[in-house]
Design a protein around this nucleic acid. Structure first.
Length: 327
DNA sequence: AAGGAAGACAACCGCCAACTG
DNA sequence: ACAGTTGGCGGTTGTCTTCCT
Protein backbone atom coordinates (compact mmCIF):
# COMPACT_ATOMS: atom_id res chain seq x y z
CA UNK A 1 0.00 0.00 0.00
CA UNK A 2 1.31 3.39 -0.89
CA UNK A 3 1.91 6.00 1.68
CA UNK A 4 -1.18 8.07 2.26
CA UNK A 5 -1.39 11.44 0.58
CA UNK A 6 -1.27 14.24 3.14
CA UNK A 7 -3.96 16.17 1.39
CA UNK A 8 -7.07 15.31 3.28
CA UNK A 9 -9.23 17.70 5.17
CA UNK A 10 -7.89 16.31 8.43
CA UNK A 11 -4.47 17.52 7.47
CA UNK A 12 -5.53 20.91 6.30
CA UNK A 13 -4.19 22.46 9.51
CA UNK A 14 -0.72 21.19 8.66
CA UNK A 15 -0.66 22.07 5.00
CA UNK A 16 -0.49 25.46 3.46
CA UNK A 17 -3.23 26.70 1.21
CA UNK A 18 -3.72 29.71 -0.96
CA UNK A 19 -1.28 31.50 -3.16
CA UNK A 20 2.19 30.16 -3.60
CA UNK A 21 5.12 32.18 -2.39
CA UNK A 22 8.21 32.69 -4.58
CA UNK A 23 10.14 30.51 -2.16
CA UNK A 24 7.69 27.65 -2.58
CA UNK A 25 7.83 28.04 -6.32
CA UNK A 26 11.58 27.86 -6.22
CA UNK A 27 11.57 24.75 -4.07
CA UNK A 28 9.14 23.00 -6.34
CA UNK A 29 10.89 24.09 -9.49
CA UNK A 30 14.30 23.04 -8.25
CA UNK A 31 13.05 19.69 -7.05
CA UNK A 32 11.36 18.79 -10.30
CA UNK A 33 14.27 19.96 -12.39
CA UNK A 34 16.62 17.78 -10.36
CA UNK A 35 14.40 14.79 -9.71
CA UNK A 36 11.59 14.83 -12.21
CA UNK A 37 7.94 14.72 -11.34
CA UNK A 38 7.35 11.25 -9.98
CA UNK A 39 4.69 10.79 -7.34
CA UNK A 40 3.31 14.19 -6.40
CA UNK A 41 2.91 13.39 -2.75
CA UNK A 42 6.59 12.45 -2.73
CA UNK A 43 7.43 15.66 -4.54
CA UNK A 44 5.64 17.67 -1.89
CA UNK A 45 7.33 15.76 0.91
CA UNK A 46 10.83 15.63 -0.52
CA UNK A 47 10.82 19.24 -1.62
CA UNK A 48 9.98 20.26 1.95
CA UNK A 49 6.78 21.90 0.86
CA UNK A 50 3.91 22.17 3.29
CA UNK A 51 1.56 21.48 0.44
CA UNK A 52 -0.38 18.47 -0.66
CA UNK A 53 0.69 16.64 -3.78
CA UNK A 54 -2.32 17.80 -5.66
CA UNK A 55 -1.49 21.39 -4.97
CA UNK A 56 2.07 20.86 -6.18
CA UNK A 57 0.89 19.19 -9.31
CA UNK A 58 -1.51 22.02 -10.06
CA UNK A 59 1.12 24.65 -9.43
CA UNK A 60 3.56 22.92 -11.74
CA UNK A 61 1.09 22.30 -14.51
CA UNK A 62 -0.57 25.68 -14.46
CA UNK A 63 2.29 27.96 -13.61
CA UNK A 64 5.81 26.59 -13.30
CA UNK A 65 6.04 24.30 -16.28
CA UNK A 66 8.76 25.69 -18.52
CA UNK A 67 6.89 25.07 -21.74
CA UNK A 68 3.99 27.27 -20.82
CA UNK A 69 3.02 29.91 -23.28
CA UNK A 70 2.54 33.21 -21.53
CA UNK A 71 0.54 36.23 -22.44
CA UNK A 72 -2.81 36.92 -23.97
CA UNK A 73 -4.48 34.54 -26.34
CA UNK A 74 -3.87 35.35 -29.96
CA UNK A 75 -6.85 35.69 -32.29
CA UNK A 76 -5.81 32.39 -33.84
CA UNK A 77 -5.79 30.67 -30.51
CA UNK A 78 -9.09 32.23 -29.63
CA UNK A 79 -10.62 31.02 -32.83
CA UNK A 80 -9.29 27.55 -32.30
CA UNK A 81 -10.64 27.47 -28.76
CA UNK A 82 -14.05 28.47 -29.98
CA UNK A 83 -13.98 25.86 -32.65
CA UNK A 84 -12.68 23.11 -30.42
CA UNK A 85 -15.25 23.98 -27.81
CA UNK A 86 -17.93 23.58 -30.39
CA UNK A 87 -16.68 20.07 -30.98
CA UNK A 88 -15.66 19.06 -27.51
CA UNK A 89 -17.80 21.08 -25.16
CA UNK A 90 -16.31 21.76 -21.77
CA UNK A 91 -13.58 19.20 -22.17
CA UNK A 92 -10.96 21.75 -21.26
CA UNK A 93 -8.10 19.34 -20.95
CA UNK A 94 -8.70 18.02 -24.43
CA UNK A 95 -8.95 21.52 -25.79
CA UNK A 96 -5.76 22.46 -23.98
CA UNK A 97 -3.95 19.48 -25.43
CA UNK A 98 -4.47 21.03 -28.86
CA UNK A 99 -3.07 24.38 -27.83
CA UNK A 100 0.62 24.03 -27.10
CA UNK A 101 1.67 25.81 -23.96
CA UNK A 102 -1.81 26.52 -22.75
CA UNK A 103 -3.41 24.91 -19.74
CA UNK A 104 -6.92 23.69 -19.30
CA UNK A 105 -7.37 26.11 -16.41
CA UNK A 106 -6.23 29.01 -18.52
CA UNK A 107 -8.56 28.14 -21.35
CA UNK A 108 -11.43 27.56 -18.98
CA UNK A 109 -10.90 30.94 -17.38
CA UNK A 110 -10.59 32.58 -20.75
CA UNK A 111 -13.80 31.03 -21.91
CA UNK A 112 -15.75 31.79 -18.78
CA UNK A 113 -14.67 35.39 -18.62
CA UNK A 114 -13.73 36.83 -21.98
CA UNK A 115 -15.82 34.86 -24.39
CA UNK A 116 -18.95 34.79 -22.30
CA UNK A 117 -18.65 38.49 -21.78
CA UNK A 118 -18.27 39.03 -25.47
CA UNK A 119 -21.35 37.03 -26.12
CA UNK A 120 -23.32 39.19 -23.76
CA UNK A 121 -22.00 42.34 -25.34
CA UNK A 122 -22.97 41.07 -28.73
CA UNK A 123 -26.55 40.72 -27.62
CA UNK A 124 -26.80 37.07 -28.36
CA UNK A 125 -29.79 36.50 -26.24
CA UNK A 126 -31.24 33.39 -24.81
CA UNK A 127 -34.20 32.70 -22.70
CA UNK A 128 -32.22 30.22 -20.76
CA UNK A 129 -28.55 29.53 -20.79
CA UNK A 130 -26.86 26.22 -20.71
CA UNK A 131 -23.50 25.62 -19.21
CA UNK A 132 -21.74 25.34 -22.48
CA UNK A 133 -21.86 28.05 -25.07
CA UNK A 134 -22.01 26.77 -28.57
CA UNK A 135 -21.14 28.05 -31.95
CA UNK A 136 -23.24 29.72 -34.49
CA UNK A 137 -22.69 31.49 -37.72
CA UNK A 138 -23.12 35.23 -37.49
CA UNK A 139 -24.55 35.30 -40.97
CA UNK A 140 -27.77 33.80 -39.80
CA UNK A 141 -30.72 35.59 -41.14
CA UNK A 142 -34.08 33.98 -41.11
CA UNK A 143 -35.14 32.15 -38.05
CA UNK A 144 -37.58 29.42 -38.57
CA UNK A 145 -40.61 30.65 -36.79
CA UNK A 146 -42.59 27.58 -37.70
CA UNK A 147 -40.63 25.44 -35.35
CA UNK A 148 -41.14 25.82 -31.69
CA UNK A 149 -37.98 23.92 -30.99
CA UNK A 150 -35.94 26.77 -32.29
CA UNK A 151 -32.40 27.00 -31.12
CA UNK A 152 -29.58 29.29 -32.04
CA UNK A 153 -29.75 28.94 -35.75
CA UNK A 154 -27.24 29.25 -38.46
CA UNK A 155 -27.60 29.39 -42.13
CA UNK A 156 -25.04 29.72 -44.79
CA UNK A 157 -25.34 32.46 -47.25
CA UNK A 158 -23.21 31.97 -50.23
CA UNK A 159 -20.55 34.45 -51.19
CA UNK A 160 -20.46 36.10 -47.84
CA UNK A 161 -17.72 36.03 -45.34
CA UNK A 162 -18.67 34.26 -42.24
CA UNK A 163 -17.14 33.21 -39.05
CA UNK A 164 -17.77 31.33 -35.90
CA UNK A 165 -19.81 32.86 -33.23
CA UNK A 166 -20.63 31.18 -29.99
CA UNK A 167 -24.09 31.43 -28.64
CA UNK A 168 -25.78 30.19 -25.58
CA UNK A 169 -28.37 27.63 -26.26
CA UNK A 170 -31.22 26.03 -24.54
CA UNK A 171 -32.79 22.70 -25.03
CA UNK A 172 -36.17 24.27 -24.47
CA UNK A 173 -36.19 27.43 -26.45
CA UNK A 174 -33.89 30.23 -27.25
CA UNK A 175 -33.86 33.28 -29.36
CA UNK A 176 -31.12 34.94 -31.25
CA UNK A 177 -30.92 38.42 -32.54
CA UNK A 178 -30.69 38.86 -36.24
CA UNK A 179 -27.15 40.04 -36.16
CA UNK A 180 -25.04 40.07 -39.26
CA UNK A 181 -21.98 41.94 -38.19
CA UNK A 182 -20.77 40.71 -34.90
CA UNK A 183 -17.58 42.43 -34.01
CA UNK A 184 -14.75 41.00 -32.09
CA UNK A 185 -14.90 37.50 -33.38
CA UNK A 186 -12.56 36.34 -36.06
CA UNK A 187 -13.56 35.61 -39.58
CA UNK A 188 -12.51 32.42 -41.19
CA UNK A 189 -11.19 33.01 -44.61
CA UNK A 190 -9.35 30.35 -46.50
CA UNK A 191 -8.74 32.61 -49.42
CA UNK A 192 -8.80 31.93 -53.12
CA UNK A 193 -12.47 31.85 -53.88
CA UNK A 194 -13.14 29.79 -50.87
CA UNK A 195 -14.96 31.03 -47.88
CA UNK A 196 -16.14 28.90 -45.12
CA UNK A 197 -19.25 29.12 -43.13
CA UNK A 198 -19.20 27.15 -40.02
CA UNK A 199 -20.39 27.06 -36.54
CA UNK A 200 -22.58 25.43 -34.12
CA UNK A 201 -26.04 24.56 -35.12
CA UNK A 202 -28.58 24.19 -32.41
CA UNK A 203 -32.15 23.19 -32.77
CA UNK A 204 -33.89 23.49 -36.08
CA UNK A 205 -33.13 25.92 -38.78
CA UNK A 206 -32.68 26.83 -42.36
CA UNK A 207 -29.52 26.13 -44.27
CA UNK A 208 -28.52 26.00 -47.88
CA UNK A 209 -27.26 23.03 -49.73
CA UNK A 210 -24.65 23.15 -52.42
CA UNK A 211 -27.22 24.03 -55.03
CA UNK A 212 -28.25 27.03 -53.00
CA UNK A 213 -31.48 25.30 -52.12
CA UNK A 214 -32.56 25.86 -48.60
CA UNK A 215 -33.29 23.06 -46.24
CA UNK A 216 -33.69 22.51 -42.59
CA UNK A 217 -31.60 20.72 -40.08
CA UNK A 218 -32.78 19.43 -36.82
CA UNK A 219 -30.87 18.75 -33.65
CA UNK A 220 -27.57 20.07 -32.47
CA UNK A 221 -24.37 19.91 -34.35
CA UNK A 222 -21.49 21.57 -35.97
CA UNK A 223 -22.22 22.87 -39.36
CA UNK A 224 -19.80 23.74 -42.06
CA UNK A 225 -20.23 24.80 -45.60
CA UNK A 226 -17.71 25.54 -48.25
CA UNK A 227 -18.93 28.23 -50.47
CA UNK A 228 -17.81 27.61 -53.95
CA UNK A 229 -21.27 28.03 -55.25
CA UNK A 230 -22.75 24.94 -56.71
CA UNK A 231 -19.59 22.98 -56.34
CA UNK A 232 -18.87 22.28 -52.79
CA UNK A 233 -21.13 20.52 -50.44
CA UNK A 234 -22.22 21.02 -46.93
CA UNK A 235 -21.52 18.93 -43.97
CA UNK A 236 -23.05 18.50 -40.61
CA UNK A 237 -21.27 17.21 -37.58
CA UNK A 238 -23.55 16.45 -34.69
CA UNK A 239 -22.56 17.87 -31.40
CA UNK A 240 -21.10 15.16 -29.24
CA UNK A 241 -23.59 15.79 -26.52
CA UNK A 242 -26.59 16.31 -28.68
CA UNK A 243 -29.36 13.99 -29.60
CA UNK A 244 -28.16 11.20 -31.76
CA UNK A 245 -30.12 11.68 -34.91
CA UNK A 246 -30.25 14.29 -37.59
CA UNK A 247 -33.18 14.94 -39.82
CA UNK A 248 -32.76 16.71 -43.08
CA UNK A 249 -35.58 18.04 -45.10
CA UNK A 250 -35.98 20.40 -47.94
CA UNK A 251 -37.22 23.77 -46.85
CA UNK A 252 -40.00 24.31 -49.30
CA UNK A 253 -41.30 21.04 -50.55
CA UNK A 254 -39.82 18.46 -48.26
CA UNK A 255 -37.56 16.99 -50.88
CA UNK A 256 -34.91 14.69 -49.66
CA UNK A 257 -31.60 16.34 -49.12
CA UNK A 258 -29.10 13.60 -49.40
CA UNK A 259 -25.86 15.47 -49.62
CA UNK A 260 -25.55 16.87 -46.16
CA UNK A 261 -22.50 14.79 -45.69
CA UNK A 262 -20.64 14.79 -48.92
CA UNK A 263 -17.24 13.63 -49.84
CA UNK A 264 -14.77 15.85 -51.51
CA UNK A 265 -11.41 15.07 -52.87
CA UNK A 266 -8.74 16.62 -50.77
CA UNK A 267 -6.73 19.12 -52.70
CA UNK A 268 -4.67 22.17 -52.06
CA UNK A 269 -7.75 24.14 -51.33
CA UNK A 270 -9.07 21.70 -48.82
CA UNK A 271 -10.25 23.16 -45.61
CA UNK A 272 -10.56 22.13 -42.07
CA UNK A 273 -14.10 21.10 -42.74
CA UNK A 274 -13.07 19.02 -45.67
CA UNK A 275 -10.67 17.15 -43.50
CA UNK A 276 -13.24 16.68 -40.81
CA UNK A 277 -15.60 15.49 -43.47
CA UNK A 278 -13.11 12.97 -44.71
CA UNK A 279 -12.64 11.76 -41.19
CA UNK A 280 -16.35 11.42 -40.81
CA UNK A 281 -16.49 9.27 -43.86
CA UNK A 282 -14.18 6.90 -42.10
CA UNK A 283 -16.29 6.86 -39.00
CA UNK A 284 -18.74 4.16 -38.25
CA UNK A 285 -21.77 6.15 -39.27
CA UNK A 286 -24.83 4.72 -40.82
CA UNK A 287 -26.69 7.19 -42.92
CA UNK A 288 -29.42 7.73 -45.40
CA UNK A 289 -31.98 5.76 -43.53
CA UNK A 290 -35.49 6.48 -44.46
CA UNK A 291 -38.00 7.94 -42.10
CA UNK A 292 -41.12 10.03 -42.03
CA UNK A 293 -41.04 13.76 -41.80
CA UNK A 294 -43.61 15.94 -40.12
CA UNK A 295 -45.60 16.44 -43.26
CA UNK A 296 -45.86 12.73 -43.77
CA UNK A 297 -43.43 12.67 -46.65
CA UNK A 298 -40.28 10.69 -46.90
CA UNK A 299 -36.89 12.00 -46.11
CA UNK A 300 -33.57 10.63 -45.20
CA UNK A 301 -32.49 10.47 -41.67
CA UNK A 302 -28.86 10.15 -40.86
CA UNK A 303 -28.50 8.18 -37.72
CA UNK A 304 -25.43 9.04 -35.77
CA UNK A 305 -24.82 7.36 -32.50
CA UNK A 306 -22.65 9.37 -30.21
CA UNK A 307 -20.83 6.35 -28.94
CA UNK A 308 -19.76 5.50 -32.43
CA UNK A 309 -17.80 8.69 -32.80
CA UNK A 310 -14.14 8.26 -32.43
CA UNK A 311 -13.26 11.48 -30.75
CA UNK A 312 -9.57 11.03 -31.11
CA UNK A 313 -9.93 10.24 -34.74
CA UNK A 314 -12.02 13.31 -35.19
CA UNK A 315 -9.62 15.52 -33.36
CA UNK A 316 -6.31 13.84 -33.85
CA UNK A 317 -4.82 16.55 -35.97
CA UNK A 318 -5.93 20.10 -35.80
CA UNK A 319 -2.51 21.14 -36.88
CA UNK A 320 -3.93 21.65 -40.30
CA UNK A 321 -6.13 24.36 -38.90
CA UNK A 322 -4.84 26.64 -41.62
CA UNK A 323 -4.43 29.87 -39.72
CA UNK A 324 -2.65 28.54 -36.67
CA UNK A 325 0.76 29.92 -36.04
CA UNK A 326 2.48 29.03 -32.83
CA UNK A 327 5.74 30.54 -33.79
C1' DA B 1 -8.41 60.11 -3.46
C1' DA B 2 -11.63 56.57 -2.00
C1' DG B 3 -14.26 52.78 -2.54
C1' DG B 4 -17.16 49.76 -4.97
C1' DA B 5 -17.68 46.93 -9.31
C1' DA B 6 -15.95 44.21 -12.66
C1' DG B 7 -12.37 41.56 -14.69
C1' DA B 8 -8.56 38.36 -14.71
C1' DC B 9 -6.37 34.80 -12.92
C1' DA B 10 -4.97 31.39 -9.36
C1' DA B 11 -6.19 27.81 -6.51
C1' DC B 12 -9.36 24.72 -4.19
C1' DC B 13 -13.03 21.18 -4.01
C1' DG B 14 -15.20 17.08 -5.02
C1' DC B 15 -15.81 13.42 -8.04
C1' DC B 16 -14.08 9.55 -10.44
C1' DA B 17 -11.24 6.20 -12.87
C1' DA B 18 -6.95 3.98 -12.70
C1' DC B 19 -3.58 2.16 -10.07
C1' DT B 20 -1.34 -0.37 -6.25
C1' DG B 21 -0.38 -3.44 -2.50
C1' DA C 1 -11.15 -9.17 -5.10
C1' DC C 2 -10.84 -5.32 -2.46
C1' DA C 3 -9.84 -1.09 -0.24
C1' DG C 4 -7.02 2.83 -0.14
C1' DT C 5 -4.24 6.15 -2.86
C1' DT C 6 -3.22 8.95 -6.67
C1' DG C 7 -3.79 11.88 -10.45
C1' DG C 8 -6.85 14.08 -13.75
C1' DC C 9 -10.69 16.75 -14.56
C1' DG C 10 -14.43 20.30 -14.48
C1' DG C 11 -16.85 23.40 -11.57
C1' DT C 12 -16.47 26.80 -8.28
C1' DT C 13 -14.52 30.07 -5.21
C1' DG C 14 -11.00 33.24 -3.67
C1' DT C 15 -7.83 36.96 -4.39
C1' DC C 16 -5.64 40.53 -6.63
C1' DT C 17 -5.79 44.21 -10.08
C1' DT C 18 -7.92 47.55 -12.86
C1' DC C 19 -11.51 50.53 -13.96
C1' DC C 20 -15.15 53.64 -13.02
C1' DT C 21 -17.85 56.88 -10.47
Amino acid sequence: MRKPEQCGKNNSNKLRKGLWSPEEDEKLMNYIINNGQGCWSDVARNASLQRCGKSCRLRWINYLRPDLRRGAFSPQEEELIIHLHSLLGNRWSQIASRLPGRTDNEIKNFWNSTIKKRLKNNQISTTTTSASPKLCNPQSHELNKDHNNMGGFISTQHNQHAGFMPIFTSSLSSTMTNTRNIEGLPVLDYGLNMQVDGGYFNGTGQCFDDNNKSFYLENDGIFGSVNNIGIEGDMFVPHLESANTINTTDHNNHHIVDNITCKRETNNNSTYFDDINNILNNCNVSKNKRCENRAGGNLFQEELTIGEWDLEELMKDVSYFPFLDFS
